[in-house]
Design a protein around this nucleic acid. Structure first.
Lengths: 137, 137
DNA sequence: TTACTTGCAAATGCTTTGCGAGCCG
DNA sequence: CGGCTCGCAAAGCATTTGCAAGTAA
């Protein structure tokens, strides 16, 4: 997992006090989860009472454009974000608890490209989400 | 592809004039595409000037609960619907034109279940969307 | 009859934006 | 200094809902 603040700086994004705080908050929250804008706002606002939710919205959009974070729209209505990781992965969402697990499957990735090509397309993006319930043993 | 009106009747849903019209509109539009609520509303409203968009929203939700139509949230912001088909399929979306293609891939389906099980989950739903651009020959 | 439906308009919830003030380089 | 940012409140959008009147079975 990358350091959002560091990457943005390297890419030349003007870093303000608010952006630094928001970047750090996302980097830290990404270790354990996929925070939505409000969760990011709550954490950032705790460190700087003046940060507004409008700034959080503007900032995550910017970070995403700079390739520092990734946006996900799972089936719960709001957008969730996470710091970019070095390896691509997909998600499995626990529909009972909202827990999100990450996984990678080379085989699926490969087949996706083939399917796209078969349809006459070059694959540029994809979305794969599994929704499940925990198996009790 | 099923007949939405017929299926809803069979399942005992009280069919009003508005629901009949909306069901027929969706059945017909599903042949060629994946209409959003507004497109459904426009078509239905043409047949009965009194149908309101609120009714369309309430009705598609109902049809979905009755398993007569399926809801999709692609990356364009609004929800799209289509009449249930007998075989499950996923979608490839042309990011330049918005065109939507359907495809089925048994292998991916199979791997998905295995991935879920490996993580300790029973797969109950999934979302697989490919986004691509047409390959010019 | 009578519980279920509808149209309308108002209310949501999440996200975006105009504006004047403030800050970074 | 001068353009980029910010906080605030207002605006947007898709979708939902309260209510009184209308309707299917």
């Amino acid at each position: 997992m990358i350091d959002v603040k560091k990457l943005c700086k390297e890419k030349g994004l003007r870093m303000t006090e608010q952006r630094n705080i928001i970047a750090d908050v996302i980097t830290k929250m990404s270790i354990t989860g996929h925070p939505d804008v409000n969760e990011i706002f709550l954490n950032a606002n705790e460190k700087d009472r003046n940060i507004s939710i409008a700034t959080v919205y503007r900032t995550v959009k910017l970070f995403e454009e700079y390739g520092a974070i990734e946006k996900h729209d799972f089936k719960d209505g709001r957008s969730r974000y996470e710091a970019i990781e070095d390896h691509h992965h997909d998600h499995l969402i626990d529909i009972e608890t909202g827990e999100i697990h990450e996984f990678t499957n080379e085989q699926i990735e490969k087949i996706q490209s083939i399917v796209a090509e078969t349809l006459g397309y070059k694959l540029v993006d994809h979305r794969l989400e599994l929704y499940g319930i925990k198996i009790k043993k």
